[in-house]
Amino acid sequence: MPALEMSQVRKVYGADDQQVVALNDVDLTVDDDEMLILVGPSGSGKTTLLTVAGALLRPTSGSVKVGGVEITDLDDKEAARFRRDQVGFVFQSVNLVPFLTARENLLVVRQFGGSKIDGAAKKRADQLLDELGLGGRGDNLPSQLSGGQKQRVAIGRALMNEPPLVLVDEPTSALDSELGKQVMDLLRSEIKGRGVAAIIVTHDDRVLGYGDRQVQMVDGVLSSAAPATATTT
């Protein structure tokens, strides 16, 4: 079963003359353990596609299934639970809670919705931080971390609940070349190592070779898929 199936998904902002079609009858399937790179110019609808796939935004029409479950008809509470349990997000900018340490930023996703932070959760957080090269930084607040380290913590948080789908928005936009490469190496390693599906939105050419497949979006329309053009590491 595919990790993500989007069928005839349309998202329109505004009304009447002010209408903007952000997604124009998009069809997209992402298989389990597939790493998809979504490219396109600014304003082409990439982030909208990501947010629809992650239940942050409801499409105007069409069907979105994650793990075979239709998510377009979830109410707000169900959508929040879905995001917590089924999706790992890495947002474009630095995205950590500033008053929580790196370890706590990973653990916080286990806190809400009635779950508990038990010994297993702490062990998993420490293990993830180790894998991300942040073993000694668990007790640091975000303000004590570099940009690359913060992005790695965000990747760790996205993987903390072992979601079947990871959605990553412009992971390298705020990083220099070296840090960007490190983060993408790490991201690919973690995602492929866990066998989960991922969509990585980017307009950074350096990222293109890290995916299994690459699709392009222009004016809300997906162009034909293309195989990845480069290999990594």
């Binding site: 929040a80 639970r81 995001r83 917590r84 999706v87 947002f91 809670v97 809400f112 948080r157």
Partner: peptide, 8 residues
């Protein structure tokens, strides 16, 4: 951020 990652 907390709301986006699934906090009710």
């Amino acid at each position: 951020l907390l709301r986006a990652i699934g906090t009710g």
